[in-house]
Design a protein around this nucleic acid. Structure first.
Lengths: 259, 259
DNA sequence: GACAATTAGTGGTCTTACCAGTACACCAAA
DNA sequence: TTTGGTGTACTGGTAAGACCACTAATTGTC
């Protein structure tokens, strides 16, 4: 029978309470990683809720990766405690990895047009700004052998943003900005990885230089092409990194199996 | 279909499938932010699952912040990217009407690519849908001399949306959708005006037909070109209407001055 | 016209029943 | 003994139906 509640204003929501309660029990160490939870029927008894509500609560935990469930076996507390990435849209990408490449596709289109328009409409003032950003990035990469990836990412972003702003189209700036945020928040780890590798980094530097020159020299088509190449090669590299990560995960799973 | 859940087993989990399906529908723009979803009973019927499974699926979406639910009311789609595609740009429009043409510029780019991809990737099923939307619009225009502008705008929007969805890129769908919303909310009056004039309306019809044919015949470049022309000509027409309105306003002001 | 009561529809929860996998004890054959 | 099947008693997965609590639109009343 039901739990209480005359909780006005806010809704009680039994299943959410169940999820919260179990999560707390896990955090408190009552249920430890790898351990088999009591069966659903038993938990119903213990928590005083129906199986429907309990199952909804369990599903929330499952969708957060806190427990893993197999039919006929039961639910176990997941080994890996999920990272603190409570980003709301991260879920989209986690569940639909393909979305990442859809995102890159749209972004390529916009970056390409952005570079083209910058080369076409950029004022001398714009060019000065773009040049500064480019040199800041370039100098940083050249000056130190041990780069701070996060800092480099900021410089990189600043460079692209300067070009986009030179397009003198605020809507374009805004749209591109939001897509870039989305991209970085979802795959920042991979991007970091990208900067760490000497090969791709060299390639990125060359491409940045080409974009920079084309825009500075007011060569729209060239600028667009360079930006497109830049983005597609980033896509390829991310794909490779992803494939590699999957390989690593698989071998890790094999190791676990032997334990 | 997989969602999270380390579904190492082979069983297809109904609730996860439900969550994924609904999420896809939201991504595709079938259910849009702020919109009320069908009731649970109705969704059960439509998806062919029990209410228990459906509710578990909904709870996953709820825990991700994708939908919000209130007892006695229903579930509404939450803003996908909070604070992003809300209305930061709306302010721009108030201050700088020129932004409208920036918006059209970006939209042309996306519509063009959308049409190109649709022609390239569209499945037979996509084509059937596009054809239905096109014919619905076409028949309506042909059948009546005294069109309901608002209804026509909906049909028009549906046609473009169908093409965009045939691109099979949810990010593109979403981005284009939000830009279109922005456009309509800012200049719906002008768009109405556009439909009322026989000249531009004829032109629009011809262009729609060209887009339709190019996409149906799987001719990517042609489709892109047609979409681009369509948008640029809409831009021109809007410009004319705007100029005309300004003339009217000025003469109105002159009249006022005499009062 | 304003306001209260009715009512149909919504999500929230519980119950029951059955299906589909899994683990383990058991027992017969090699 | 070992091996291999097989039964059985669990597990989670799904469906269906019955309520309750709440909301909003409709209707009836003053």
């Amino acid at each position: 029978m039901v739990s209480n509640s005359q909780d006005i204003g806010m809704t009680p929501r039994t299943p959410d309470a169940v999820a919260a309660r179990l999560e707390q029990l896990i955090l408190d160490g009552v249920f430890r990683p790898g351990q088999l939870l009591p069966s659903e029927r038993r938990l119903c008894d213990r928590l005083g809720v129906s199986r429907s509500s309990l199952r909804e609560g369990l599903r929330v935990l499952r969708s957060k990766g806190i427990i893993e469930t197999r039919q006929g076996r039961g639910s176990v507390v997941a080994q890996l405690v999920p990272g603190r990435d409570d980003n709301p849209l991260m879920y989209l990408f986690r569940d639909h990895p393909r979305t990442l490449y859809d995102l890159l596709e749209v972004r390529s289109l916009l970056e390409g047009e952005s570079a083209r328009l910058a080369a076409e409409r950029g004022t001398p003032a714009d060019m000065v700004l773009i040049r500064r950003r480019y040199e800041a990035m370039h100098d940083y990469v050249e000056s130190t052998s041990d780069v701070d990836v996060e800092h480099l990412a900021r410089l990189d972003h600043g460079f692209h943003l300067a070009i986009c702003q030179a397009s003198h189209n605020p809507v374009l700036v805004h749209t591109l900005q939001s897509l870039t945020d989305l991209l970085l928040s979802s795959v920042f780890a991979s991007v970091k990885n990208l900067y760490h590798r000497p090969g791709p980094r060299e390639q990125i530097n060359r491409q940045h230089e080409m974009i920079y020159r084309a825009v500075s020299d007011h060569q729209p088509e060239q600028a667009r092409q360079s930006a497109l190449e830049h983005l597609t090669s980033i896509g390829h590299n991310l794909r490779e990194i992803e494939a590699e990560n999957e390989r690593l995960e698989r071998s890790a799973m094999r190791l676990e199996a032997y334990e």
